[in-house]
Amino acid sequence: MGLLARAPADRLAALYPHISEHAVLRGPETGAVMVRGRQGGTGAPFNLGEMTLTRCSVRLPCGKDGHAYVQGRNKDHARRAAVLDALLQTEAIGEVTARVLAPLAEAESAQRTARASKAAATKVEFFTMVRGED
């Protein structure tokens, strides 16, 4: 679900253009979630600020339910992610994994590695020039 939530909406739409038949149980509805942090990074929680979130719940004709909570305000994204979440509980799991999840995971991993690699290239190597004692 995290992968579907983080995926760029247009990329998801390109990988899964036609949404399977489904009934909407709730939403899609856009709202806000209060994001919390911790004092000193590890202490008691405090409210940092909100982020936008769109949620959707669907039911497939076979009776399986799917839920999605995706960052941002894109209702199509939430509906698509909810239907995919439901499909992952049916025999379509193999096809959905191969056609949608695997390419998303690969793209995300490549993007993360690229970013981490650029950061790593800015790591400082210190050289000791002179030591104070004789």
């Binding site: 856009t30 979630v33 919390r36 942090g37 911790r38 979130l53």
Partner: peptide, 17 residues
């Protein structure tokens, strides 16, 4: 915006820096 909930506190120790 309706308030849909509260997150669990973010873990900055696991940040992708």
């Amino acid at each position: 915006l309706p308030r849909l909930g509260y997150s669990t506190p973010v873990d900055t120790g696991k940040m992708a820096t």
